[in-house]
Design a protein around this nucleic acid. Structure first.
Lengths: 204, 204
DNA sequence: AATCTTAAACTAATTAAATTAGTATAATAA
DNA sequence: TTATTATACTAATTTAATTAGTTTAAGATT
């Protein structure tokens, strides 16, 4: 019974490799164990089960995405930084389709660590948005706009849901153009409305 | 052995009810059968299994969404129609969170019927976009923008992934404002560059 | 060096869910 | 009345996750 000397990290790394190759729904603990040269129950010495594995993959993915984005926005400011953030996220997802698929369900496994990984990312995005001349409340709204667009777009690409032959990255670029142009065009209005903050009605 | 007189439609309807209440990942054929007053193997007289059930739910969802959107854009034109389309989709998803969750994976079960349900919807959206003064190619790009934003935003709402206390519908309205303002602001530029270009093809 | 402890592997058994096989009966058609 | 078919059933199978209980290698303690 030669010890394989496997630890949590080895397991996660192998799972990342597999999940990006065949997708999460094809993965079983048996298959994962076989790829590591052990039997499936032995995995329980390192992880708590398949739900825990998914949780670990999510945390791993959001941490990596956060790192990539952080690197990408160094030395860039304003709308260019927003664009750089989007492109860095795009690149990460295209390289890690399987991991991204798991990341999308992060609500399902709320935890301390997960909270930490995603809130760091949100903090960065808030800083980027806030460096533009936009009232705080609108920054929070816009973060939702971007989260929605980015995660949705990646999901559709990932699923092969775009049938039209137009290049996928071109549509992505144009979408970002539209979002940025939209913010630039509405920003003066938001600043006008924000100065009389007690208004209850909707803008426009 | 009193016949329960159950048919495919009864099964789908009950599944819709259950999936919206407890979510797809909580549903088993046993539970579904119990809710219909039969045993799980009897379901196989009407459906081919759990994957088929998901496929049926997807088709059902996309058909219903398409109907709701079609109704919503009657007698509305231009950017108002785009807005009406988005709001109608929003309403449908908020009323059917479980079904929407299943709809998101429609790539997984490509079929004749699925193709029909979604391409009808895409045709409508293409008509709306195309009625604006925008070159064809950009219409196709923008459909991707909207699909990405809408499906992503709904996914995040559905998953409870927005932690901030700001009202969710307000962010949605602002996001649509941003998208429309962005298109309006870039449209002259697109017409300048692409005035000669026409692409014939199917929406996506 | 001998022994103790622990971590990490194993085999075997259990549970849960989907599915398949084979049987029985109610409803309907001939 | 009889034959056919659809729809239900029970029982068995398969597959995957998980749990229980056992064994052994590696390192720590005497």
């Amino acid at each position: 019974m030669a010890k394989a000397n496997i630890d949590k990290e080895t397991i996660i790394n192998k799972a990342v490799e597999l999940v990006n190759r065949v997708g999460m729904d094809q993965i079983t603990l048996k298959m994962l164990a076989e790829n590591l040269g052990i039997k499936s129950p032995s995995l329980y010495n390192h992880i708590e089960g398949i739900d825990d594995l998914k949780k670990q993959l999510m945390i791993y993915g959001w941490k990596q995405a956060e790192q990539r984005i952080t690197q990408a926005v160094i030395g860039v400011s304003g709308y260019d930084a927003i664009r750089a953030m989007c492109y860095a996220f795009y690149d990460y997802v295209m390289e890690n389709p399987g991991v991204f698929h798991v990341m999308l369900w992060y609500n399902k496994f709320q935890s301390e660590e997960m909270e930490k990984a995603t809130s760091q990312l949100l903090t960065i995005i808030f800083k980027l948005t806030n460096s533009l001349d936009i009232p705080d409340d609108y920054c929070f709204h816009l973060i939702r706009t971007f989260r929605g667009f980015l995660e949705g777009y990646f999901l559709l690409v990932n699923n092969g849901s775009f049938g039209h032959p137009l290049p996928i990255f071109e549509s992505f670029e144009i979408s970002i153009d539209v979002l940025i142009a939209g913010i630039q065009s509405l920003e003066p209005e938001w600043n006008k409305i924000d100065s009389m903050k007690t208004t209850k009605g909707e803008p426009q």
